[in-house]
């Protein structure tokens, strides 16, 4: 069983709103000073799901792939430290500023180049753009079945059993291999690597691939190949001006709040 985990490095979503800034000229987020980028949390959970399947089967391989700049090595190393066997970085200026479709094309090409992949695990969405497209598009490009928003995944004989989160509950689906799974936060916390694992991962070599290695023309990836075109990225204005409820005791605060809400005919 060879499972690929797709991992993305993103600006830390816990960046306080006061430190979140946009460069209007380039429509890009200005990296917050002193706040390092992180592995998207949903991808860390996808890695956890893949590793548990490998461990339950007692054999197999997990490869982590990231499309990004050289700094994305940190995201790859984190998944290696969690227990992944190999890492691949897809780093080429031609890949930059693409949309979900070009990103999926690059990742799917790398998965095809690896050749012997049985399953691809992705986060349900990246916690920066929150599109939730790449896993589905990889499945479409490879023509593999896909199960999205998983809260559980396990091997059942020759098939993969996936528990999915729905609006009103859960469903269990069975999917034949090869398959794509996108994993949601309901799966649970990813493991935290210990120091010896972090040090071992640091020594591992990450394979690098560029557009040419994947047989991709620069015109079909990155900004050049994008169909969804970003026109403007901006910080929305916040409407409300808060009125703090006065009162020396919780009882006084409660009484004042109730009288305000009654005056507004809200209760």
């Amino acid at each position: 069983m060879h499972i690929v985990v797709c991992a993305k490095q993103i600006p830390d979503p816990e960046t306080p709103p006061s430190a979140f800034k946009i460069d209007a000229a380039t429509n890009k987020v200005v990296p917050a000073q002193g706040i390092a980028p992180v592995l998207s949390q949903f991808d860390a959970i996808a890695a956890e799901a893949a590793l548990r399947i490998k461990e339950a089967g007692g054999e197999g391989k997990v490869t982590v792939i990231s499309m990004g700049a050289e700094s994305a090595q940190a995201a790859i190393k984190q998944v290696l430290a969690m227990g992944a066997d190999e890492g691949v970085l897809l780093n080429d200026p031609a890949f930059e500023d693409g949309d979900s479709h070009t990103t999926a094309k690059v990742l799917a090409s790398a998965i095809q180049k690896l050749g012997d992949v049985d399953a691809v695990f992705c986060g349900r969405q990246a916690a920066d753009w929150d599109m939730g497209q790449v896993g589905l598009l990889i499945a479409e490009i490879l023509d593999w079945p896909v199960a999205t928003i998983a809260k559980g995944a396990s091997l059942e004989g020759e098939t993969l059993s996936v528990e999915r989160v729905l609006a009103d509950g859960f469903e269990t689906v069975q999917v034949p291999f090869p398959a794509v799974v996108t994993v949601s936060n309901e799966f649970g916390e990813p493991r935290y690597p210990k120091l010896p694992q972090i040090m071992a991962a640091a020594k591992k070599t990450v394979t690098q691939m560029k557009a040419g290695d994947l047989g991709l023309d620069p015109s079909e990836v990155g900004k050049a190949g994008s169909r969804l075109q970003l026109q403007k990225l901006f910080i929305p204005e916040k409407g409300a001006q808060v009125e703090f409820i006065a009162g020396d005791t919780p009882q006084e605060q409660a009484a004042a709040l109730v009288s305000k809400l009654r005056a507004d005919k809200l209760i």
Binding site: A240, V242, P250, V258, K260
Partner: peptide, 25 residues
Amino acid sequence: NIFDFSKYGVVGDWKQVIPALIEEL
């Protein structure tokens, strides 16, 4: 951050504020 979105804000420990609110209602 919640107060950036709120019309009314109550600063306090929910363990005291909410039971008082229930009593008041």
